[in-house]
Amino acid sequence: MSTDQVDGCVAAMAVSPLSGRCAEVVERAEHACFGISPFNSYFSTARIRELAAWGLEWFERVDFFVPDAPSAYTFEALGYAPGKAAWKARRQGQYTRNKIITALDSLGQADADQRVLGWAELESNAAFGRLHEGGLRRYAEDADFRDACREATGWVLAGKLPAGQAPDEGQVEHAVRYFLAELPLFIDTPAIVDAGTSVFCYHQPPAVLRRLYGGELTWRPAAGQGFAVIAPTVRESKKQR
């Protein structure tokens, strides 16, 4: 494992794969993709450093996915003008990217700026483009899949609205493009980053991902794709696998 650059102690992580196949992919420990939400205060620089240190300890390669530009869809659904929404998404996305690079630099990673997967990197990636187009097409043609995507989007929007207020149909339909932009990383990250297997790591997945990895939806993750809920626990001494 890539441990020579990680000093001292690393945060212990509670790792909960979403399925048996996900557990197998975690055990392979080839690649981890950490989802880092630009507008979530959970992802402080210290938290990102903890995740990075743990990832470098246990996996051969790590990357960090930042849904920067697609965040504008959520803000537009909340009433922001497109220009203002794009500006907010771009500014916060750059701030989040900088936090990741700072964390990786502190861990001695010379290629820190190459470990961030934002929209600029993904929109020129052929595998991502193919998967994204496939998701858009499936959303238009498959009612069950469409309902699942909209449910996930409603869950995200509900957390950004005043207590007791639910998003309307128009808001969900607009903001769902954010979820569809993320979806390729849940379906086939290995194809996007040229890895044999990959684990997408996040601390709080929407219910639709449990259905996705449970094989309940018509679109299913690639054989080498896994997902694990990752949460820091107590600190422990670094150890080798």
Results as ranks from 00 to 15, higher is better:
Cys201Val: 08
Ile36Trp: 05
Leu183Asn: 07
Leu183Asp: 06
Arg61Glu: 15
Tyr213Glu: 03
Gly135Ala: 04
Ile100Gln: 00
Tyr73Val: 00
Ala29Lys: 12
Ala223Pro: 08
Pro162Ser: 12
Glu141Asp: 13
Arg241Phe: 05
Val176Ser: 02
Ala81Gly: 14
Lys238Trp: 06
Ala46Asp: 12
Asp63Lys: 06
Leu212Arg: 03
Ala222Ile: 08
Gly154Leu: 04
Pro67Gly: 04
Pro205Gly: 08
Asp147Ser: 09
Val156Asn: 03
Ala143Glu: 15
Trp219Tyr: 03
Val229Ile: 13
Trp155Lys: 08
Gln165Thr: 12
Val25Ile: 14
Arg241Ser: 11
Thr74Ile: 15
Arg146His: 00
Ala53Met: 04
Phe39Val: 12
Tyr139Cys: 00
Val15Glu: 15
Glu169Val: 11
His31Gln: 14
Asn40Tyr: 04
Glu216Cys: 05
Leu212Lys: 02
Pro70Gly: 03
Arg130Ile: 04
Ile187Val: 14
Ala231Cys: 12
Ser44His: 08
Ala29Trp: 07
Ala231His: 14
Asp168Ser: 12
Leu104Met: 05
Asp68Glu: 04
Leu180Asn: 01
Ser19Gly: 06
Gln109Asp: 05
Ser2Asp: 05
Thr96Cys: 13
Gln165Trp: 09
Pro82Leu: 07
Thr189Tyr: 05
Ser41Leu: 15
Thr153Phe: 00
Gly118Asp: 11
Thr233Arg: 10
Gly83Phe: 07
Gly215Phe: 01
Val172Tyr: 05
Thr218Ser: 11
Ala152Asn: 00
Val208Lys: 01
Ala163Tyr: 12
Pro82Asp: 08
Tyr178Ile: 01
Phe179Ser: 05
Thr74Asp: 04
Pro206Leu: 02
Thr218Met: 04
Ser198Ile: 09
Trp54Val: 12
Glu133Ile: 02
Trp58Asn: 14
Asp194His: 11
Tyr202Phe: 14
Trp54Ala: 14
Glu76Ala: 02
Ala103Ile: 04
Lys99Asp: 11
Phe39Trp: 10
Gly35Leu: 08
Ile187Phe: 13
Tyr178Gln: 02
Ala228Pro: 10
His203Asp: 14
Val199Ala: 09
Glu151Ser: 07
Met13Ala: 11
Gly159Tyr: 06
Arg177Gly: 06
Phe227Thr: 03
Leu212Tyr: 03
Gly135Glu: 02
Cys149His: 00
Ala110Lys: 01
Tyr202Pro: 02
Glu173Gln: 08
Lys99Trp: 07
Gly224Phe: 11
Glu123Arg: 09
Arg137Val: 02
Trp119Glu: 05
Asp147Tyr: 05
Asp194Thr: 07
Ser41Pro: 13
Leu104Trp: 01
His174Asn: 10
Gly226Val: 10
Gly226Thr: 07
His203Ala: 11
Ala103Met: 03
Tyr73Gly: 00
Ala222Asn: 07
Ala29Tyr: 09
Ala12Gly: 15
Phe145Thr: 03
Asp144Ile: 03
Asp168Lys: 10
Ala127Gly: 02
Phe186Glu: 00
Leu104Val: 06
Tyr213Thr: 04
Lys84Arg: 14
Phe65Thr: 01
Gly118Leu: 05
Leu131Glu: 07
Val10Glu: 10
Phe128Pro: 01
Ser41Arg: 15
Ser124Met: 05
Ala72His: 10
Val15Ala: 09
